[in-house]
């Protein structure tokens, strides 16, 4: 009788522990903002948390019991399951999932094989990271980069045109200056010729004066 009571008490304590453990697991599973789900070895979803319901727009009752392909496209699912089976873990594989409205949601997939104590694979844990916001930022950055490229190209064209105009002006100015230099050189040449002529005339004048003086001197002697 005492033993029976003890056993009943033990069972009652174990049931309470089990309930507490179950409640802890459920709360943790429901709390995480990361979409989590568990997949059977045949690729059927057996468990889904509220975050997965949110990202897919489907209720757990619509997700559980359905093949993974209803969320992740078939080819990708096959690849992930194969990789997970071989490597036991798939870390950060980018893909898209389809929500209830048929919209594609970019995600990173993490998957890990679950095994029994004997080492037999009994399913896969899946976790997703929603990339919608980071993709939007990437697109904005890309858009900004493109705008910047257009602006830089426009500025480059403007600078090139300015440069060309400047070169044209320099060329024109150089030509003008060259013309002026030529004129100056011409004037200079004229001036120099005149100078030389003057010098030559002066020389001639001097020679003529000396000749006259010589003649006058000779005439004076003759008289």
């Amino acid at each position: 009788m005492v033993e029976k009571n003890n056993n009943e008490r033990k069972i009652s304590i174990l049931l309470e522990d089990l309930s507490s453990l179950e409640s802890y697991t459920q709360e943790l599973f429901a709390f995480t903002p990361l979409p989590l789900f568990f997949v059977s070895p045949n690729g059927v979803i057996l468990e889904a948390n509220p975050a997965l319901e949110k990202i897919t727009g489907k209720g757990a009752y619509e997700i559980v019991g359905e093949p993974v392909e209803t969320i992740i496209e078939k080819e990708k699912t096959e690849k992930i399951l194969k990789d997970t089976f071989e490597k036991e873990i798939v870390f950060k594989d980018e893909t898209t999932i389809t929500n209830k409205e048929g919209e594609k949601v970019p995600v990173n997939v993490f998957a890990q094989a679950r095994k029994t104590k004997e080492g037999r694979k009994v399913g896969y844990f899946f976790s997703l990271i929603d990339l919608t916001e980071s993709k939007k930022k990437e697109e904005k950055l890309e858009e900004f980069g493109q705008v910047l490229e257009v602006k830089v190209a426009a500025k480059t064209r403007e600078l090139k045109r300015f440069n060309e105009e400047l070169e044209e002006k320099i060329r024109e100015r150089t030509e003008e200056l060259e013309e002026k230099v030529k004129e100056l050189e011409k004037i200079n040449r004229l001036m120099l010729g005149r100078e030389l002529k003057m010098v030559s005339l002066k020389e001639q004048l001097k020679e003529a004066q000396e000749e006259i003086n010589k003649i006058k001197e000779r005439e004076g002697h003759e008289k």
């Binding site: 179950e22 568990f38 059977s40 057996l46 559980v64």
Partner: peptide, 11 residues
Amino acid sequence: KTSLVIKFFMQ
């Protein structure tokens, strides 16, 4: 789809 016990088994 929602039974905890069945999920333990289905794995």
